[in-house]
Design a protein around this nucleic acid. Sequence first.
DNA 1: GCCATTAGTTACATATTTGTAAGTACCGTA
DNA 2: TACGGTACTTACAAATATGTAACTAATGGC
Lengths: 132, 132
Amino acid sequence: MATRKENSTYTRNEKCIIECDLTYAVNKIGGRWKILILSKLESKKFRFSELKKEFSFITERMLTLQLRALEQDGLVKRTVYAEVPPRVEYELTEMALAFGPIFKQLSDWGGKHRNLTKQDSKISPSEARGKL
Amino acid sequence: MATRKENSTYTRNEKCIIECDLTYAVNKIGGRWKILILSKLESKKFRFSELKKEFSFITERMLTLQLRALEQDGLVKRTVYAEVPPRVEYELTEMALAFGPIFKQLSDWGGKHRNLTKQDSKISPSEARGKL
DNA sequence: GCCATTAGTTACATATTTGTAAGTACCGTA
DNA sequence: TACGGTACTTACAAATATGTAACTAATGGC
């Protein structure tokens, strides 16, 4: 999320990934806190401090980084008001709103299948959680 | 993807994430090569060596790791035939097949929006690609 | 015995992401 | 002049993910 080496295998491989529309899309929402943030912003716009309060477990640094990445990717619009103390508001763009129905389905999938897995694989919930 | 410390902030934070059905679902397909693999397997089952040939840019190690993770998560079924040389086949489970329509929509989203972003943000495609 | 084949595994190195803690800038108010 | 509030930024450390290269095991065919 910081700077990237332009010629690592890791970075070169990324090109293989995002040539596909599907992986391209998933990559955009793949950051650790992005989906949580996007979901939150679905209802209304939020100030930075409000998001910070809402997601107390996300550090300021990460919140900033994820918001910036979302902004770069055109999913979030950032509005700065020239006041003191500063006020910055974040809201979803059209592009991000188009994710709405997809999120709904993914969420349904999650709700439906998370219990199934526990039984199928005979792994305790906590164990299953530990794995990627 | 290897072993995880059970009490790092990183790991503890994961619990915050997967409590949400949506992020739970996205996490399952979030590995670097998982979507590519799942897409491939949508059409038919594949042997390990076939996948290796298909995705020449994925190393054996990563291919194995991603397949194992998918298996753990109940998205892929692994069948070993007791032959020499060994034969192992991978195929999607019901759970994974349920992703089908969602993948389609995500892919559509990707196709529709990847061009838009380039214009909107005035970043060259190659630059945009470098960012997460 | 030696080699080829398949499906891995192992030890190690590198890259990237995430987390911690402290510091910055602005200005109005006390 | 010191202090508080907001929205960050910076330097650094820890954790995780990915990549490289070499090695394994079983067995049929030479």
